[in-house]
């Protein structure tokens, strides 16, 4: 290590890192404090002398209770969870098979297909949401969970395929060749040898895909109209604002609770998530 002086370490390391940390986390703190603050404190003039905006002396769970009891928030949570899980499952299934084929099998057009999948990976949902809405309507899928379960894979499959393809390429070819000589079929070698070894990669792809679908917004906004079928992000945006009035306590409670599931998944699998994240941009 290169040795440095103490004051330098403070100026160039501790202070900037602390500023970053505060900056990155303050909005979450603000969510929390707003969610447990009584309305009387929330809407007080900002020049009020007795204002204590950074904490509250009268914490309350009213907003949370309202949210859970009087809105469809629990329903949205369930919808989001269901849709994210199923579409992640579908995408992992497709991505595993396609990633294996692209990484291992020799067939005409392999290169072209790999490039095509990479290109679809880069297609943003906002480019296609209008025609896609038409297609969803034509397929009679509008306002059903299937509209999202079938369209989320469009951005999840390319990602999963890409990530898993990279992972498969790191597994020595000889392992499955050996399995085939040992008596396994091609498919058997893939399923019994390669897939079990790829579990960390599959986990990474799955967790990343789950958070992506949990966070998806524009498809859910356009394809779903009934309040009871909405996902958390759309429900919070469209149903918690009545008319022009923002109920900030409830909104922040919703934002907080809607973030908790992904944050939990993330905190349990940080390593895998980071592996997925960094793997997602590897060429």
């Amino acid at each position: 290590m290169v040795i440095e002086r103490r004051w330098k370490k403070w100026v160039f390391f501790y202070v900037p890192l602390t500023l970053f940390l505060v900056g990155m986390l303050f909005p979450f703190y603000w969510m929390l404090i707003t969610a447990i603050r009584p309305d009387a404190e929330l809407y007080r003039s900002w020049r009020n002398v007795h204002n204590t905006p950074f904490w509250t002396l009268h914490p309350t769970l009213d907003h949370v209770q309202d949210l859970l009891a009087r809105t469809m928030f629990p329903r949205w949570l369930w919808n989001t969870f269901f849709i994210a899980t199923v579409s992640t499952g579908i995408s992992l299934f497709c991505g595993l098979l396609a990633g294996y084929a692209l990484a291992r099998l020799k067939f005409p057009m392999a290169g072209t297909l790999g490039t095509a999948i990479f290109v679809t990976y880069l297609v943003p949902p906002t480019l296609l949401f209008i025609p896609l809405a038409n297609i969803i309507r034509n397929f009679q899928l509008g306002d059903t969970p299937w509209a999202l379960i079938l369209t989320y894979p469009t951005f999840l499959i390319p990602f999963c395929t890409w990530l898993l393809m990279g992972y498969f390429k790191t597994i020595p070819k000889e392992l499955e060749e050996c399995a085939r000589v040992d008596g396994a079929t091609r498919f058997g070698a893939m399923a019994r040898i390669i897939f079990p070894i790829a579990v960390p990669g599959i986990l990474s792809a799955g967790i990343f895909a789950f958070t992506l679908s949990w966070n998806e917004f524009i498809y859910a906004l356009v394809f779903i109209s009934s309040p009871e079928r909405k996902t958390v992000p759309v429900g919070v945006v469209s149903e918690l604002i009545r008319g022009d009035i923002y109920f900030w306590g409830q909104l922040m409670a919703g934002a907080l609770l809607g973030s908790v599931p992904v944050a939990l998944v993330y905190s349990f699998f940080v390593e895998y998530y980071v592996a997925g994240l960094t793997g997602s941009v590897k060429g």
Binding site: F217, G254, G258
Partner: peptide, 9 residues
């Protein structure tokens, strides 16, 4: 990690 919509709120 957190849904963009929610943190933007």
């Amino acid at each position: 990690i957190v849904p963009t919509v929610l943190s933007t709120f």
